[in-house]
Design a protein around this nucleic acid. Structure first.
Lengths: 335, 335
DNA sequence: CTGAAAGCGCTAACAT
DNA sequence: ATGTTAGCGCTTTCAG
């Protein structure tokens, strides 16, 4: 059996209450006894039993991150993992454990309900990919501490945070204008691609603000494959006038765009500048290296970690907001 | 306060012991009382407090995955996350929770010791990037249930599993020979890059077996950047005779290699075939799409999950082995 | 400043 | 078949 608080108390010639107090840094303990107790703890190699603590304090000090993870997730969704890393770091720092649970949409309700009722964990961070209206009802009716990552696409009572892609779009457009590009085109995903749409929204808001005209062929939508980026860029090039810069809604599109430009012997960044979003290793490998507006998802994860513990402490705290730390990383694809 | 076992007992007119027994399906309970108790539990919406259970049963039913995760890990190390996904899935299936803990090498010992002693978790899966000889001593002296992912590079008592990169190298070489390439070159990482070295080892074993001669310039080592792959390929091309195929130790190298070949107007796969390892999305984006030898790390994760729970049940089980599921995915860069 | 004692909710001997 | 009871290791009043 491992050493317990009793052993420490006996050895230090005090009561367990005193030992407990020194562990919690109570002021009402004389320096001598505190020192003595600390020393004994050291000698005995005492470690408080976390389970006992969890039990009496009615908290596990752990939060569950629930999301859908299937095969290939590691490769297809590096963002999510990056975010998880930030979250883990913050939770660790705050003394919380980070439990990850992969679930399909249909199983989430049951899991959350049970995990909450059995007090298996203290709170939940839930990826927007697995939320449902029923889950919203559940968490709000039971007051389950939670935080959703990603904007829900339906009416809800969730607390959520998301990256502000509109803002990121604004930052991209602003940067282009600032460094001297006068006309800009945009290639993005389909209507369903909310991220792309939000980025476009931001871009347009800035362009309008600066009275930059946008010929219709400057706006291209399609799938997000490399070849789609290639084709859309060609479409843009076909028009009467060429834009001075192109904003690509994501890295794949940007790769296709760069290829098309190079095939047409158009110099980047002199003749046309290219900017995209998210700092995948990818962007640094391409030639030219891509200028990107990066959203620090690690930071967002940290924020999420910090928020969920706040929520646990103040259950009536209600957060529904976009947060973001967009930052432009200037590389070779823009002047 | 939520309803406890006492409430159930009172309401059902029995003792808490009886309630506990019906929950655990004890045979020595009459059907009537069992039914009654179950009904009361239902009525009251009773859920056993998991924390109390953990406390008395001295087990959390959770295993911790400890690794070093810093910023960018999500982008730089998709493999690890893919592996984690497989592990999570398996552990979930076996009724275990999956806790992830990011730690630096210097902190791992303390953490593991403490987490074990405080019974915070039941077992550990540890990434080889954070293991030390001290940790080996610790886990073996205390009999801590663990499994390390990756071969340790020092004498140790760990249980470990790893991907068999040598085997993967053999598979790559064999495939090349099979489809008709007669001479093959290899570009890989530095001496310290064990993965690259093991892959090379496998390649050479097959080449020797088939009496394929390897001029010294066919073997190139360097860093693993795209530009390194480019430069090494050029080195190879400088030689008196050209190889018919090139094996690239990783994706970045492969990208540089392809670029160099294309700049030299060498046709892939007709004049020179290219093969690499690991099925990053990357490989499918390049033009031509890359033929790869893939190692299914998700499967490996599942294996790891399954092994650690075995270890918990049978502590004297000792595993030190390479496991792997290499599979060649033929795409455009080889005939 | 320190200690005694009462739980927290559950399991598991041990009685009955 | 069921109930009594003694913990598990810790926190936290409440006295001293």
């Amino acid at each position: 059996m491992s050493v317990t608080i009793k052993d420490v108390a006996r050895q230090a010639n005090t009561s367990i209450a005193t030992v407990s107090k020194v562990m919690h840094g109570s002021y009402s303990i004389s320096k001598e006894t505190a020192d003595r107790v600390n020393q004994v703890m050291e000698e005995l190699g005492y470690h408080p039993n976390q389970r006992a603590r969890n039990f009496v304090s009615k908290s596990n000090k752990t939060i569950a991150f629930v999301t859908d993870i299937d095969k290939e997730a590691g490769f297809k969704n590096p963002h999510m993992f990056e975010m998880m890393c930030g979250m883990e770091a913050m939770l660790s720092q705050k003394g919380y454990g980070f439990l990850v649970k992969g679930l399909t949409k249909s199983d989430v309700c049951d899991y959350v309900k049970n995990a909450f009722e059995t007090k298996y964990v203290d709170g939940f961070v839930i990826h927007a990919s697995v939320i449902t209206p029923q889950l919203s009802d559940l968490v709000s009716s039971k007051g389950i501490p939670h935080l959703v990552i990603g904007v829900p696409s339906f009416d809800n009572n969730f607390c959520w945070i998301d990256a502000d892609n509109k803002h990121a779009g604004q930052v991209a457009a602003k940067h282009l204008l600032t460094v001297g590009y006068r006309t800009v085109a945009f290639i993005g995903g389909t209507d369903e691609d909310k991220i792309s749409m939000h980025r476009l929204e931001g871009v347009l808001s800035i362009l309008n603000e600066h009275d930059v005209l946008i010929p219709s062929n400057y706006l291209q939508y399609g799938n997000s494959g490399v070849e789609d980026g290639y084709a859309m860029t060609l479409q843009i090039l076909k028009g009467a006038s060429r834009p001075e810069a192109i904003i690509c809604a994501n890295n794949y599109l940007a790769y296709g765009c760069v290829k098309a430009l190079q095939d047409k012997k158009i110099k980047i960044p002199e003749e046309i500048g290219v900017i995209t979003f998210d700092d995948y290793p990818f962007s640094q490998i391409l030639n030219p290296k891509l200028t990107v507006v990066n959203i620090d998802v690690y930071d967002m994860g940290q924020e999420a970690g910090s928020m969920i513990v706040q929520k646990i402490k103040k259950p009536n705290l209600h957060i529904q907001s976009y947060i973001t730390y967009p930052q432009v990383i200037v590389r070779e694809s823009t002047k």
